[in-house]
Simulated assay, not measured.
Amino acid sequence: MATLDADATLRAELYDRRMREMDRGDSELYAALARDAEGPALELACGTGRIYLDALAEGCDVDGFDRSAEMLAFLRERAAERGIEPSVWRADMTDFAVDREYELAYCPFNAVQHLLTIENQLDALRNVYDALAPGGRFVFDVFVPSFELIAETYGEWRTESVELREVPYKFRTRTRITDEVEQQFTVENELYDPDGSRVVAESHRLKMLPKREVELLARRSPFEEWTVRGGFETIEADATIEDGDSVQVWTLRKRA
């Protein structure tokens, strides 16, 4: 099993803690989809296993991959603590292949927004399409860009206290627009130990994806059907998205 150095473990543990504390309500939806799938499921960008490990513990036939080796190593450690055996590997959404057909593929928590170019976005959709069995579906979520939220909070550092391994740290994060033309933004995270030394510094660049842009990508992809709803409560065919919704949950289906 891969092991992590101290800094990598700290980064992975910080990420895992923050994702779990957000309680977005998405884990229940994705776990239910995996339970109800009539065949195996695949989680893209599974990270430290916030959703993946619970689905696996419930007996779901689910595989996963992530491009971060440190996140996967942390996931495997957590799985060992729970006595479950994960089937995960390192790969990128834009360049992956599988040796089985999946009834369901899903990608939680805005992860597709890390795909910055149209070419990368379409490559990922083609790869997912090829991984699905006939009639299979791909479910993912992205946020609805809010001009009010951007105006009020972007560009400002937010600071909070966080305890990791019984040690108090100061965590701060900032989101800012870094390319107005391409509608890209950067999330910066920093962690400081009790002595004030910065022990983690990372940044992630992402792409805004309003509804119409996602629909255009779906139209250019191999998928034949797609729907979108505004929340994690359900993905029934008649569900809708409306002004004021903060989340887009997309379902792309491969024709049977």
Rank of each mutant, 00 (worst) to 15 (best):
A12L: 03
E180Q: 14
E225D: 11
A133E: 12
S221K: 05
Q113W: 03
G231N: 07
A45C: 14
F109V: 08
D245Q: 10
A69L: 11
D141E: 09
D130L: 14
R165P: 01
C107Q: 06
D61S: 11
G135D: 09
R253H: 05
T186D: 00
P86H: 01
G59R: 08
G244Q: 12
D5Y: 06
A69Q: 12
P222L: 03
R76S: 09
A151W: 05
E101T: 13
Y30R: 05
D141A: 06
G155Q: 01
R137Y: 11
T227Q: 13
R24C: 09
R100P: 02
A2L: 14
E119V: 13
F65H: 04
R205P: 04
Q183T: 11
E103I: 00
D193V: 04
C46P: 05
Y106I: 03
D63E: 07
Y102E: 12
V142Q: 01
S203E: 15
A2Y: 14
A111F: 04
A111Y: 01
P134C: 06
S197K: 15
W89F: 14
S197H: 15
M93H: 04
Y129P: 06
Y102Q: 08
Y169C: 07
M93G: 08
E233K: 15
S203N: 15
G47T: 02
Y102C: 07
D179Y: 08
V62Q: 02
M22H: 14
E13G: 04
A105K: 02
D245S: 10
F140V: 00
P145G: 07
K207I: 08
G135T: 04
V228C: 13
E148D: 14
A97P: 08
E233C: 05
R18H: 08
S27D: 15
T186R: 09
L217E: 00
L191R: 05
E242R: 13
V98Q: 06
L132N: 05
H114T: 10
E148I: 11
M93I: 10
E148C: 09
T186Q: 09
T159M: 13
R219N: 11
I150F: 05
E182P: 07
D95T: 08
E224L: 10
F147Y: 08
E215G: 07
R172H: 10
G136T: 01
I177V: 12
